Every structure is written in C-alpha cells, then in structure tokens.
Computed example of a mutant assay.
Amino acid sequence: MSALPDGSPGSRPHSPSGEEGPGTAETGPGGRRPKAGRNLPVAIGAGLGMAAVVLASLLIQPMAFLGLAVIAIAVACWETGTAMRRGGKNVPVYPLAAAGVLIVVLAWFGGATGLLLGTAVGVVALFVWRLSEGATDYRTDVPAAALVLVQVPFLAGFVMLLATSGNDAARLIDGSAAQVLIMLFTVVLSDTGGYTAGVLFGRHQMTPTISPKKSWEGLAGSVVAAAVGGSVTLWAFFGVSFPLGVAFGVCVALAATLGDLSVSLLKRDLGIKDMSNLIPGHGGVMDRLDSILMVAPVAYVWFRYLLG
C-alpha cells in the first residue's frame, strides 16, 4: 500500500468532483495554485504507519504479509462494490470480497496458475449469482462486477507472485521480498516526484476531463523520480545496470499514473471523491492501492522476464 495520501508526500489537491493529481494545472485567484485539501500531518502519519507494517510483514513473517493482502483486497473489493451500488450498479459486494480473497490466496500458494484459476472461479461465480437476479440491467451489472474483480484482486495477484517468487518470501536476501519493496518504493517515489513537480511547476492539464488537477509537469516529475530511484535500488539490490533500471522506473511511473487515472475515472463516473473514509487523511483502501495495482503486473514482467 502506498505510504502517501493520493500518491503524494502529503496529499494531492482535490477538485470539488473528487479528482486528484500529482500536481495541479489549475490556478486560483491571482494565479496561485490551491493547497492540498487533506490534513497533512494526519495523512503522513497514517502513511508512515502503513508503510512500517508492510515492511515488517515482508521482512519478518511472510504469512503476515499475506494476511495484510487478504484484508486489504477484501476491503478494496467491498469499497468498490459499495460505490458501484451507490452509482446504480447491482453488484454483489460480499461475494466480490470473498472472490478477491480466494484469488490472492490461490496466487500466493499456486502461483500464476492459482491466479488464473481463482479469477476464472470468481467470474463463474458472478454469472451464477446474476442468474437469480433476472434480466433487468444484466448487460451492465455483470461487466461492472467483472471490472471490480479484474481491477482489484486479479491485479493484486501479481504482488503475490512477486512476493513468493524467491526461495523464501520471509527473507529480503532471497530476493522475493526485495522485489515487492523495490516496486512499492518506486511507486512512492513516482507519487512524491509527481506531487512535488506538480505543486511547484504544474501549469498544463494532462487529463482535464478525468482528473483536472493532474499536470504534464507532474507526470515529468513522476518519471524522473521513479527512473532515478528505480535504477539506484535495482543496482544496489541486484546489480542491475542503470539503463535497465531507468527503463524500469519509467515503466513504473507510467503504469502508476494509468492506475491512478483509471480509478479517478471510475470515481468521477460514480460522482464520489474517495472510495471510503477508512484511513485518516487518505480516503479508502482502494484510494491507496490504485497506482500499486496497475504497477504490479508491470513489475512482475520486469522481474520475471526482463531482469532475470
């Protein structure tokens, strides 16, 4: 989970519609940019606390990390399903949460095969559930539920694949925990760089119809920060060459931005600011996972096939 609220060191400013960004391309009276809309001390404290828990679970007890993942994905599925129901989509909130747990557990113990099997079972369960609800809105309810299943637990399954790809997921020196930590650290750097560059230099809107406060300057800051941080950490842990590390960081920054935008688009469509208010200063669990979920398969491809 990202240690930063809305992918930033403090928070990314929100528009009235709830859209956030790594920086702001909009200016207030006198050309001054609006300040962040969250309680920064509370948000930073909560973010650091979450980061410490995740770090400890990865380095000390792998089953604790699995437990954290199960809880986070179940809650994220519940949040997203509940938000969709408020938006008029008849999706099964608790079956979705149960399917999310099944997918991440099967990915942890069964690898890629388990991930695919769990996702297939979850999709079939959605169709079986919908049979009892009749034909009304069938063509919209099933895709909405399937979207939650793919966007949350399926993508999260790639984090499980990274965490168990070493000889022993409990120890950093075996590589698997290091892969997860490097991925999370690079996402945090991307968010921090994007927020800083956006606040300082943001002038040009990147996606005005999706997330008005995202700027091209913020995206540039994300790419630079992730490229530098990714290359340094990959070299330090695995001896990866700097050009490959830079490419890894750029891919992470772009994927993180895409994940952020996809959830922003969903929230704009549903007319909400945050998925929930479970985490002080951060919103909901899904608001913290948006970037990480999209980065996970990208990082998996890099570590599994491109970096060896």
Rank of each mutant, 00 (worst) to 15 (best):
L48H: 04
T186P: 03
P22H: 07
A125E: 03
S276K: 07
Q61M: 10
G245Y: 08
F65N: 00
A296M: 02
M275S: 10
L244Q: 15
L131K: 10
G283C: 14
C251M: 09
G218S: 07
G229Y: 06
T140E: 06
R203Q: 07
L58H: 08
L131D: 11
V252C: 08
F154A: 07
F303T: 00
W302I: 08
D174L: 05
N277K: 11
D6R: 10
P5G: 15
A72N: 05
A169T: 03
L161S: 04
G28V: 07
A112Q: 00
S222D: 10
G10D: 13
I73T: 10
E20H: 01
A227K: 15
I44W: 10
P13H: 09
L306F: 13
K35C: 00
L244Y: 14
G111L: 01
V75L: 08
A255I: 04
V224I: 15
D141V: 03
V228G: 12
G229Q: 11
L58P: 07
L149A: 10
E19N: 06
W108K: 02
P243H: 14
R171V: 01
A120C: 09
G308C: 01
L149T: 05
T136N: 10
L115I: 11
G239A: 13
V285L: 14
L68F: 12
D274V: 14
L102Q: 03
M286Q: 14
G100M: 13
S291W: 09
T209W: 13
A253T: 14
P280E: 14
T186L: 09
S276Y: 12
I71T: 15
H204F: 04
L102M: 13
P212I: 04
A56L: 13
E20R: 06
M294V: 15
V54L: 10
D290E: 08
T80F: 13
M286I: 11
G67I: 09
T186R: 03
V199I: 13
V301N: 02
A43P: 14
R171G: 01
